[in-house]
Design a protein around this nucleic acid. Structure first.
Lengths: 131, 131
DNA sequence: ATCACTGCAAAGGGTTTGCATGGTT
DNA sequence: AACCATGCAAACCCTTTGCAGTGAT
């Protein structure tokens, strides 16, 4: 949790603002669209580079599940994600029962030092479950 | 769990055999290499198409974690996977403690009907943890 | 003056797809 | 004959990268 210095450029500031503004866990392309409304000359490469950096500094979270596209979450705090198997929407889920999941994991198994986990919950969103 | 009919072509048979033969959870490219030793004229497209079909029929398992590349597992039974954060190797893990994870999940939350989950455990393999 | 950041465009990787051909029933 | 599977190659999507120019300290 070291406080490394990260330079807050205009691009980074707006990428972060836009990402925090939405709950949709957008991919880089959607973020590019959103940011471009405020910063029309930004390049897609810059968006990719900065999302990567923001994630490395734990300012945002990178989600790399099931879909072929990486998605990003403006909320870096520990929580879970559910993906609708039908429409693909990704939402936050706060499941207290699962907060001790880390403690259930062994420290070591089969010669591996166990460090963490990535959990994706799957299901159907309120719209899709009606069909 | 309906027993749908799947035609076992020579290509499918060999893809399945080769995949079951290894514990390395290879990607489509590696599977293509392996299969081509026995079926030199097979095309990469056929490998992709058949891996997709075999996974749909639950004959094999498709792993879509962290990496950009999909990996495949010849063992369709329920078990867990660990990925070495350093070298990227993926291995099977059988953790009895976690077998009831499904039961811990609520059936419903935030309007979502919860169906399942994908869990990837991360860590360091026996070689990489020494460094 | 330096060094990291940017825009642009091209390249990269993994995967999918259209099409004509070939195999099975 | 109908239908699905195959080989081939091109297309596709998402992401990364080289480069020259820009900005901030």
């Amino acid at each position: 949790m070291s406080k490394l210095k990260i330079k807050i450029t205009r691009q980074r500031k707006i990428i972060l603002e836009e990402l925090k503004r939405v709950a949709s866990h957008p991919g880089a392309d959607k973020i590019y669209e959103m940011v471009r409304l405020k910063l029309p000359k930004i390049s897609l490469g810059t968006v990719y580079r900065n999302l990567e950096i923001l994630a490395k500094y734990n300012i945002i979270k990178k989600l790399e599940f099931g879909s072929n596209q990486k998605r990003f979450d403006g909320n870096p705090e520990n929580h879970f994600h559910i993906r609708c198997l039908n429409c693909g929407i990704i939402d936050d889920l706060f499941l207290e029962k699962l907060n001790n999941l880390k403690n259930i994991l062994p420290k070591e198994d089969k010669g591996y030092k166990i460090i963490g986990y990535n959990l994706e919950i799957t299901g159907l969103c309120s719209k899709c479950k009606l069909k």
